[in-house]
């Protein structure tokens, strides 16, 4: 599974990095980026939590094509 951050929406709250540090990284320009290609199975629940907690609701799973 892949996850995506909408950079237009992200305002650098860092909740995703706190919830799933192995998947998200808050850059110096206050935008969060996804640092893995595929989310490891062990992190799926953490990513779900990040999606739920993001104040801007800027995170979503990428739907398979």
């Amino acid at each position: 599974m892949k996850v995506r951050v909408n950079e237009d929406m992200c305002e650098g709250h860092g909740k995703c990095q706190a919830a799933a540090p192995g998947v998200f990284r808050l850059r110096d320009d206050d935008v969060s980026e996804v640092i893995v290609d595929e989310v490891p199975a062990a992190d799926v629940e953490k990513v779900e939590r990040a999606i739920r907690l993001c104040p801007r609701q800027a995170i979503a799973w990428v739907k398979p094509a």
Binding site: M9, E11, R52, L53, P55, R56, Q57
Partner: peptide, 13 residues
């Protein structure tokens, strides 16, 4: 995880 600032598009700036 309260909603005092709302959530999403209009989350309190």
């Amino acid at each position: 995880d309260h909603l005092a600032f709302g959530i999403g598009e209009h989350f309190c700036l």
